[in-house]
Design a protein around this nucleic acid. Structure first.
Length: 424
RNA sequence: GGAGGGAUCGCAUAGUGGUCUAGUGCGGCGGUCUUGAAAACCGCUAUAGCCGCAAGGUUAUCGUGGGUUCGAAUCCCACUCCCUCCGCCA
């Protein structure tokens, strides 16, 4: 959420953001500002009336019985007028609240314009693309042959995009997650196990709703299932006031992630690349205000994710996302794409975004600065490791000619084995 | 699933229709005293909005939302959360 005063004073900037982010027609900024002006005008009148009501009421308890009758009649009259105005005021407020939810964040100055993913810029590429003396297989073919990925029985039980990870495949997945989590703990992050069914207001708060509500599952108790631990971690301090000395808050959460993938029916139908349920280690940081600091941490957190991929010896590249391919709430976003030998392309495995106070305003997360002033925190989040997608990358990149999978060096202390081989 | 109790200014508590502009204690901040500290004493102690150069004024907020009333922390209704007990359960 942006400050309504900022919107009012920077209407053209906000409208441009709306267009650049390809969100044309989702919210009428002129209507919002006009409604807000109408609201503040009426609010002034209401407050004058409330003042009048309050002072008459106070007098009633003090004056003589004769005067009391007179005041009572006057008070009734004021009350009726007030009721009418307050009714209108409530309607206006609701309208503003609704419109405000749809106002996106303004992209940072260095975010390139682009209508879709074609506008993204590759800013770096790291690691060595593995060369194979044979035609590399995809993770599904390898996983099925080794008996570690079973999408057939997954689909039998849970439909399309369901899967089982079996035996050493499951252990390798756990190793990846633990490796990622340990790395974040080593950086000073607090590891967290988080609730994954949350009140919808926290999805609104983090900016997933209203835009992405279609991609989320909802329980019969009207809680939504998280698509990422970001929602739980970022909302952890909702409605609280921190002290500046507590910042930066550095949280690393592991959680199941649920996504309906309604926009991706035909996409990535093979294997466990795009699934309805996966597990992810996520990093979230709350900072004092100031874009420079956010930029610094945004890059730092990108580095933590890169550490994981470097440790796994996977080749990756980093993309600066263009306006049309970033979330409504985001100020700037990097994606990391990791090399998938079977597809011979880099595919998204990580997403790193900063928001300034966009999420904090929606979630009402504030802090008291050194002068005692109350301000909104700034928020950032990034993937650390998401599996089975990253598992698939490991499987494909570490495949051997005989169909076995070598376990990356850094994971061996977690798996306790060095290779996944066909049974007999 | 059933029964009962509760939610008040950072914490603990008081407050059952108007002097609540929410009392008291603790904590915190400032001051007096002191070589320094403690103790004692004095003062201050929330958030958001609006008006104002400022001083200040004003509105809202006692879990949330509605209602009754001239007036609600207080009465009524609904909801949320917490606690205790019973049952069930990993």
């Amino acid at each position: 959420m942006l400050d309504i005063k900022y919107i009012k004073e920077n209407k053209e900037i906000v409208k441009k953001a709306l267009n650049d982010k390809q969100l044309q027609g989702t919210v009428d900024i002129d209507l919002l500002v006009a409604t807000y002006d109408e609201y503040t005008e009426l609010l002034k009148k209401v407050e004058i009336h409330r003042n009048l009501r309050n002072s008459i009421s106070k007098d009633i308890s003090r004056v003589s019985p004769e005067e009391k009758q007179k005041l009572l009649e006057e008070a009734k009259h004021v009350k009726d007028e007030l009721q009418e105005m307050e009714e209108k005021l409530k309607v206006l407020k609701a309208k503003i609240d609704e419109l405000m939810l749809w106002v996106p964040n303004v992209p940072a100055k260095d975010v390139p314009f682009g209508e879709n993913e074609e506008g993204n810029t590759i800013i770096k590429q790291e690691g060595v693309v593995p060369e194979f003396s044979f035609e590399p297989k995809d993770h599904l073919e390898l996983g099925e042959a080794l008996g570690i990925i079973d999408t057939k029985r997954g689909a039998k039980l849970g439909g399309f995009r369901s899967y089982f990870l079996v035996g050493k495949g499951m252990l390798l997945e756990q190793a990846i997650l633990r490796y990622a989590l340990d790395h974040m703990v080593a950086q000073g992050f607090t590891p967290m196990n988080v609730p994954v069914m949350l009140d919808k207001k926290y999805f609104v708060g983090t900016g997933y709703f209203p835009w992405g509500s279609e991609d989320h599952y909802v329980t019969q108790d009207d809680l939504a299932l998280v698509g990422t631990a970001e929602v739980s971690l970022t909302s952890y301090y909702a409605d609280e006031v921190l002290d500046e000395s507590q910042l930066p808050v550095m949280l690393a959460g592991q959680s199941p992630c649920f996504r309906r993938e309604v926009g991706g029916y035909g996409k990535d139908t093979k294997g466990v690349f795009r699934v309805h349920y996966f597990t992810k280690v996520e990093q979230v940081v709350l900072l004092p205000e100031g874009e420079e600091l956010s930029v610094e941490w945004h890059d730092k957190m990108l580095g933590f994710a890169e550490d994981i991929l470097k440790g796994l010896n996977l080749s990756y590249r980093v993309l600066l996302m263009c306006t049309g391919d970033m979330g409504a709430g985001q100020r700037k976003k990097y994606d990391i794409e990791t090399w998938f030998p079977s597809q011979k392309i880099y595919r998204e495995t990580h997403s790193d975004s900063y928001f300034l106070d966009f999420q904090a305003r929606r979630l009402n997360i504030r802090y008291k600065d050194r002068e005692g002033k109350i301000k909104f925190v700034n928020t950032i989040n990034n993937t650390v490791a998401a599996t089975p997608r990253l598992l698939a990358a490991v499987i494909e990149n570490y495949q051997q000619k005989d169909g076995s999978i070598l376990v990356p060096e850094v994971l061996r202390k977690y798996t306790g084995f060095e290779k996944i081989e066909p049974n007999k």
